[in-house]
């Protein structure tokens, strides 16, 4: 039984003659971890900014928790939009206090979230003394203040070092395990692939695709094969249905398996035909490759 958390219906936003987003629709259900993907300028942040009520849509509508999005529905969401925005002269603690006051909850939660992102020791220092990565951590801490039902994270890995990225990924996965609904915009596809259950793909303000990560990733499985006698290998694939040669580089071929079998079956058939492979490696397209393909098509 899925409960609708957010529904975006035919949302459009123009800045003068430029259509920043054009007729975007998608829904997010409770417990989903949704990645909004798209190249720079594809409308990810604009979409989120409208959903959070800071920008007005030119057309279309959105709802949160089955009702019209308002300041009150925002209180139930922990959101980070673009870069962290805090009072530079206030300490981390006081900055989070302003967030808690605005949200109407979380005043007693400040220490916990600061510990969670590893900034507790710095709680008395002013925001302006932080590094970019630390500012990002504080922004993520702010989203978790008061334990909201939904997290909206726009480029959460921005400015973080590899260790920080891994930590934030763990944190997001933890929150997802606790049943939180998470909407995250990113252009780092690897991150989305590791974390998200669903994706929405945007380009030039249009929604190219949306759905489960698994469903969007369905494609012909591919394997990389290498053999000393490359010609007989090519002959084999050309004379056997169910395979296509996708790519050839030197003694290596990338083969698409169309008949639904797998690399083990292929290895057996080749061996039975007298061809010994020196290398066999299943190739799964990364989300990145698929995304680039989709974006090119779009």
């Amino acid at each position: 039984m899925s409960t609708e958390i957010v529904s975006v219906n035919a949302l459009s936003k123009s800045f003068g003659p430029i259509k920043a987003i054009n007729n975007i629709s998608f829904t997010v259900n409770k417990g989903e971890v949704v990645g909004i993907l798209g190249p720079n300028g594809s409308g990810k942040t604009t979409t989120l900014a409208i959903m959070l009520g800071v920008k007005h849509a030119t057309d279309g509508s959105y709802s949160w928790f089955g009702e019209k999005g308002t300041a009150d529905t925002n209180k139930r969401i922990g959101a980070l939009l673009e870069v962290p925005h805090f009072y530079p002269y206030l300490s981390l603690e006081r900055n989070l206090k302003t967030t808690a006051l605005a949200r109407g909850k979380g005043l007693t939660d400040i220490d916990r979230v600061l510990q969670r992102v590893g900034l507790y020791e710095r709680r008395k220092t002013s925001f302006q003394t932080l590094s970019l990565g630390m500012k990002q951590r504080l922004a993520i801490a702010a989203t978790m203040l008061g334990d909201p039902e939904v997290l909206v994270l726009d480029e959460p890995a921005n400015g973080l070092d590899p260790e920080g990225i891994a930590e934030i990924r763990e944190l997001i996965l933890d929150e997802a395990k606790r049943g939180k609904t998470i909407i995250m915009a990113s252009h780092i596809l690897d991150e989305v692939e590791k974390v998200c259950s669903h994706v929405v793909i945007l380009k030039n303000g249009k929604c190219l695709a949306s759905g489960r990560v698994g469903a969007l990733l369905t494609e012909t499985p591919k394997v990389l094969v290498e053999a000393p006698e490359i010609e007989s290998l090519i002959n084999f694939f050309e004379s056997n249905e169910g395979y296509t040669i996708a790519e050839r580089t030197g003694n290596q071929l990338i083969i698409g398996i169309k008949d639904g079998s797998n690399s083990t079956a292929l290895n057996r058939r080749l061996f039975e035909s007298g061809i010994t492979l020196s290398r066999l490696e299943p190739k799964r397209k990364t989300l990145e490759e698929q995304f680039l393909e989709l974006v090119k098509k779009g």
Partner: peptide, 17 residues
């Protein structure tokens, strides 16, 4: 300048507020 109006709106303060 700090874009904190935007942050307050996101955090659940309404425009009239």
């Amino acid at each position: 300048q700090f874009r904190t109006f935007r942050k307050q709106l996101i955090d659940g303060i309404s425009r009239p507020q």
